[in-house]
């Protein structure tokens, strides 16, 4: 009989990742439907305490209000889970000293980021400022990446046996950076202030986003190739997953352009052009656009897992403590004290 102890930090971290994913979906929908200013005050909601806002008014109210208030409630929930995670990590630290400090450092970063993100969300509403919205949109994925990193590092099999920088770890790191830059570029496009932006700026952003997509795709396939023979099973799995996700993401990106601005006539044979105009604000269109954003965040999360699996946190000549170890008397060693 195999005895397994309850890895509470990992469970809470996984809960945080799940809650953050839902929060990001809501956030993406808020932007898709331009619902950020659906509630004109903050931290109150139409004068009510945020948590005491009438449920029926929220749930059955206008779609914009449902999204924005839901986003705020989920944000508060994620904040609470982050605090809970900080508490359990401090109480139940990993045995291995270096990993302990890494996880604790990441948890501190998560707490700081979640507080900052909440304040940015509030500032975006109070100032009604698109620049703040852009920073808010860039901080969200950063927090998600940190949450995924904590979940991966607190897991039993989440880390690498890598003993130093390898080609796959470098490629994975590059992929992680490129995936984040793509999200930043995407956030600039999504939160564009159409009233003040210069058309040339938009063209540059589109170019950066398109070239970024090519770079992410190239790095994703490079990672899949590098991890094929040498890396751990986890790294191989994540690298294949990310290659598949990036392909879907490119298709969704083209779809997002199409549902937003149609296909310029002349780009496709006339017979392929749709005979009916697209419907603005259709549920299908919103799903494609929002799906593109959410998949981008998912790619970032998988890139974090891949980077960790290929040795992002593995120091030169050291072995990470949470590597699966040979059973001792039929029982795996407990990673947490």
């Amino acid at each position: 009989m195999i005895h397994r102890s309850l890895n509470v930090p990992h469970l809470v971290a996984c809960l945080l990742v799940g809650a953050t994913a839902v929060l990001l979906c809501f956030g993406a929908l808020v932007t898709t439907y331009d619902a950020a200013m659906a509630v004109p005050d903050w931290p109150a909601t139409y004068g009510h305490n945020m948590f005491l806002f009438p449920f029926a008014e929220w749930f059955w109210g206008p779609w914009d209000l449902f999204l924005e208030h839901g986003h705020r409630l989920l944000g508060a929930l994620v904040g609470l889970i982050t605090l809970a995670l900080a508490a359990v990590v401090w109480l139940q630290s990993p045995k291995e000293a270096s990993l302990k400090s890494t996880v604790r450092g990441l948890v501190v970063a998560a707490v700081l980021l979640v507080v900052l993100q909440g304040l940015l969300g509030g500032a975006r509403v109070l100032l009604d400022d698109k620049t703040v919205a852009k920073v808010h949109a860039c901080t969200g994925p950063l927090f998600f990446a940190v949450a995924v990193a904590i979940a991966a590092l607190t897991g039993r099999n989440g880390t690498s046996a890598a003993t130093g920088p390898s080609i796959e770890s470098r490629v994975s790191l590059g992929l992680l950076g490129a995936a984040y830059v793509q999200l930043v570029a995407g956030a600039q496009l999504r939160h564009l202030d159409v009233a003040t932006v210069a058309p040339a700026t938009f063209r540059w952003l589109v170019a950066i986003h398109v070239f970024g997509a090519v770079a992410v795709m190239a790095l994703a396939f490079a990672a899949a190739v590098c991890c094929r023979g040498q890396a751990s099973p986890g790294a191989r799995r994540w690298s294949l997953a990310i290659a598949g996700l990036v392909c879907c993401q490119v298709a969704l990106g083209i779809g997002a352009w199409f549902v937003s601005w149609g296909i310029p006539s002349g780009w496709l044979p006339a017979a392929w052009m749709p005979s009916e105009p697209l419907a603005a604000r259709s549920a299908g269109g919103a799903a494609v656009i929002t799906g593109h954003v959410v998949l981008g965040m998912l790619i970032l999360g998988v890139a974090v897992a891949l980077a960790i699996a290929t040795g992002l946190f593995a120091g030169r000549g050291t072995r990470v403590a949470l590597q699966p170890r040979p059973p001792r008397d039929g029982r795996p060693e407990r990673a947490y004290a």
Partner: peptide, 27 residues
């Protein structure tokens, strides 16, 4: 571990530089 910390610092710095770059100046 020094390398690992170096990676984290590098990533964080890049991410925040990007944030600052996109967010400079009010609308």
């Amino acid at each position: 571990m020094i390398k690992a910390r170096h990676n984290i610092v590098l990533l964080s710095a890049t991410a925040w530089l990007l944030l600052v770059a996109v967010g400079c100046g009010p609308t």
